[in-house]
Design a protein around this nucleic acid. Structure first.
Lengths: 146, 146
DNA sequence: CCATTTTTACCCACATCTAACCACAACGTC
DNA sequence: GACGTTGTGGTTAGATGTGGGTAAAAATGG
């Protein structure tokens, strides 16, 4: 797998009454994909992956034993039923359906959090509650063993 | 792993009110990367790594068992959310967002400290307090056993 | 099948911010 | 001195985030 560029940093942007959300210019380069999948997350945010995510998952299926692939396929099919595809308009915004905004409790503001191969969208209040209080390099280095 | 060139020496440069900081010409050669990751450090400075750092870490993930990769991924994702990517302008300066300047307590001056595969950015006052007093080659040679 | 309402995509407008450009003093080299 | 480089500071054209209008498309309902 070739990694091009990673989603990093945090941004706070506004959602207009049409449900449009700007994707930060930092995540718009040639190395980034221009099509996304919006999925509800169990921790109360939205996870937004590059569209190629599904293709990769489906490829993984074919390199799996028939029995274990079957269970995975069922799970993926379940996931597919709650995924919204989204493509930015010419201003770089993606439209997030109301169903999804509701899931994340989104109002007029949203926090976008970079997570390497994808990013998350949070309601600012929720984010403040669950955000780690100043993540640092050393903290993670210890956990990961750099 | 191919080591190209190492970040060495110390420099004191100024930060303008736009948050721009010159990268020393000593660290600008062809052998150095032209894209950086700015990360907050727990000792109150900023750690600045070549951008390839993240790519290498992500590749390590894919060559790991699914279970142990999961915990590592979570940690790396946490780190990603507090990383700012930065690219020098045509004068060789990188823009450091206010969020990060605040973390390091940076004013109009900054000390840049070479750390082999990365460098650190310090507020001059903080640096004076923690700076090691005049290390010499022989001293370190004894410790390391050169 | 057509009429009506709702939704969506495209376009334009605009304030703010950024990045490219220019300028220049300090320094070092030839 | 003439020249180029480096660090530093401003100016400005263009990009960016945001809002709204409108026409096309889709959904809904006879």
């Amino acid at each position: 797998m070739t990694m091009k560029e990673a989603y990093t940093d945090r941004f706070e942007f506004s959602l207009d009454d049409k449900g449009r959300l700007s994707v930060p210019v930092e995540w718009r380069g040639e190395a980034f994909e221009k099509r996304f999948l919006v999925m509800p997350s169990s921790d109360g945010c939205l996870r937004i992956y590059p569209a190629s995510f599904l293709g990769r998952e489906m490829e993984k299926l074919s390199s799996l034993g028939a029995t274990s692939a079957d269970a995975r396929r069922k799970s993926l099919e379940k996931l597919a039923s709650v995924i919204q595809a989204a493509e930015p308009d010419q201003q770089g915004r993606i439209m997030i359906r109301e169903k999804f905004r509701q899931h994340a409790g989104l109002g007029r503001q949203a926090v976008l959090v970079g997570r390497l191969d994808h990013f998350e969208v949070w309601d600012p209040k929720k984010w403040k509650k669950i955000a780690p209080p100043a993540t640092t390099f050393e903290e993670v280095a210890k956990e990961v063993g750099l």
